[in-house]
Amino acid sequence: MLDLQTAPPETAQFAAAPVITARGLTKSYDRRSMILRGVDLRIQPGERIALIGSNGCGKSTLLKCLIGLHPISGGELDCLGARMQGGGSRAERQRLRQQTGFVFQKHCLVRRRTVLSNVIHGLFGAPGSWRAFSHSIAPEPWRQRALEALDAVNLADKAMMRADALSGGQQQRVAIARALVRRPRLLIADEPAASLDPVSGRNVMDLFQSLCGGQGITLLFTSHDMKHALDYATRVVALKQGRVLFDKPSGRVSQSDLNETFHG
């Protein structure tokens, strides 16, 4: 089985340094429109955080800023030990991305390539990563890591099938395996179940919960499905107009909190 344990066990998670610390984080793409307006956020190892809010509230922008894909405009940001003021140095951004896995609403698989090759693509960015182009030229240790990641999402038997031969739910599990092959400390998922039917969507969220909860991976995901947010997150962070409206354990989020987030 794949050994994905890269963070402290859940019983000791709060003794460790935070995975993410943001203080007064701001982001604007031009001088006239501020997207994030002073976000404070602290995420501990092993937590599962649901980021919710209406379209345009800044969820996806915040995700991209937290992991260095977009430079912040102001405030302080530390992610996995990297200080990301001004976008961070190139070395810091590279080190951060090597410790982070990404899963998005669109699977972004290469449809005509094998499932195994698609998972190995998750190793692009590593030294010699041109060999991640295809399983046929990948080093044997990379092939083994990819097979172990597929086993972790219960798709080892589909390794040599073309990606476009799989169902939507299976393709999303391949995308999860592609993220896991990096052996990440932090897993970012932007609306990972939005394009799936209800059963497949819950299966994917069950998988996130099992993998992250059991292996100490920190999960930060966005969702418009409030049942997913409340059932699968340990904490819910609501954004409204670029600010944190509330940050609560999922069991303490009320219907009035959700009404204020989306209608208030």
Score class of each variant (00 low, 15 high):
Trp130Thr: 06
Arg93Trp: 02
Leu109Phe: 00
Gly81Pro: 01
Gln215Ile: 01
Gln170Leu: 12
Leu123Phe: 08
Gly88Ile: 06
Glu10Lys: 14
Trp142Tyr: 10
His263Asp: 00
Leu66Gln: 12
Ser117Phe: 04
Pro71Met: 10
Phe208Tyr: 11
Gly264Ala: 09
Leu150Thr: 13
Phe262Leu: 06
Arg31Ala: 14
Thr218Trp: 05
Gly74Ile: 10
Gln172Asp: 07
Ile35Lys: 01
Ala7His: 06
His70Phe: 04
Gly53Glu: 01
Pro8Ser: 05
Arg178His: 09
Cys57Thr: 06
Ala146Leu: 04
Leu123Gln: 07
Arg90Gln: 08
Gln255Ala: 12
Ala156Glu: 05
Arg182Phe: 04
Met34Glu: 12
Ser254Gly: 12
Phe104Glu: 09
Gln5Asn: 12
Val236Pro: 09
Asp157Val: 10
Lys248Ile: 00
Ser195Asn: 13
Arg162Thr: 14
Gln255Leu: 12
Ser210Asn: 08
Tyr29Phe: 14
Ala229Cys: 00
Ala175Ser: 10
Arg202Trp: 08
Val244Asn: 05
Ala156Asp: 12
Ala146Ile: 08
Pro127Tyr: 14
Cys108Thr: 02
Gly58Gln: 13
Asp151Met: 14
Gly213Tyr: 09
Arg48Ser: 13
Val244Lys: 03
Asp190Ser: 03
Ser136Cys: 05
Gly125Trp: 03
Ile35Ala: 15
Met205Arg: 09
Leu4His: 13
Ile72Trp: 03
Gly56Lys: 12
Arg178Gly: 11
Arg42Pro: 00
Gly169Tyr: 03
Leu187Thr: 03
Ile52Asn: 14
Ser254Met: 04
Leu62Phe: 07
Asp3Trp: 01
Pro184Asp: 09
Tyr232Trp: 13
Arg183Tyr: 01
Val153Asn: 07
Asp157His: 11
Ile72Asp: 07
Ser89Gln: 11
Val199Leu: 14
Ser129Asp: 15
Gly68His: 08
Val199Lys: 15
Arg112Trp: 03
Ile20Trp: 03
Leu51Gln: 13
His228Tyr: 08
Leu147Gln: 10
Glu10Tyr: 08
